[in-house]
């Protein structure tokens, strides 16, 4: 199962047929494993890594530190849920350290992101404060280096 998942994690478009050849496992077993992983939400979704910077319509992203007062019984979960339900919140993490929630916010302009933070995030009752860091450049995302790295050439023939 893990080997199949690792292949898909790198390239979600690999067909079960190809994965079967690559792993030496029967096709039926591969299909079964993928189905099971999908059902159990081990595979959450198949997505594409896009370098939006290459298109004119740039997206603005900000990493927002959110300091919150945890609530009795539900701890951080309730406030996290209030936040992650907004589509503007692309990723939401509970973190250790000087603040509690790390929220990656996406918008089409800086105003839009700033508006979301000041109108939606900051006013939430248990939010004590926010610090917004706008992303200036994306170098690597989810293990993928976004710029084109030149591959050094190898000798084409070497016995």
């Amino acid at each position: 199962m893990k080997e199949i998942l690792r292949i898909l994690e790198r390239d979600a478009r690999k067909t079960p047929q190809k994965i079967a050849t690559m792993t030496g496992k029967p096709l039926s077993r591969v299909k079964e494993a993928i189905k099971k992983a999908e059902e159990e939400r081990i595979i959450v979704k198949y997505k594409t890594v896009i370098n939006w910077d290459k298109l004119e319509e740039e997206k603005v992203q900000a990493l927002v530190e959110v300091k919150v007062v945890p609530q009795r019984d539900v701890g951080f979960d309730a406030i996290a849920e209030r936040i992650y339900r907004f589509p503007e919140a692309r990723s939401v993490y509970l973190v250790s350290g000087t603040y509690d929630l790390a929220v990656l916010v996406v918008g089409s302009t800086m105003q839009e992101v700033a508006g979301f933070v000041s109108q939606k995030l900051a006013p939430l009752e248990s939010v004590q404060g926010t610090v917004t860091h706008f992303l200036l450049k994306r170098y690597k995302e989810d293990g993928e280096i976004l710029g084109v790295e030149e591959q050094p050439k190898r000798e084409p023939l070497m016995p």
Binding site: R154, E155, P156, L157, M158, P159
Partner: peptide, 26 residues
Amino acid sequence: PSGIRRFFDLLASMEGVISLGVGEPD
């Protein structure tokens, strides 16, 4: 002398070659 010497010369004059002739990791 190495028998594949002339392949090098051939290769040098070509473009779009996929080499399965390498002997080292990519």
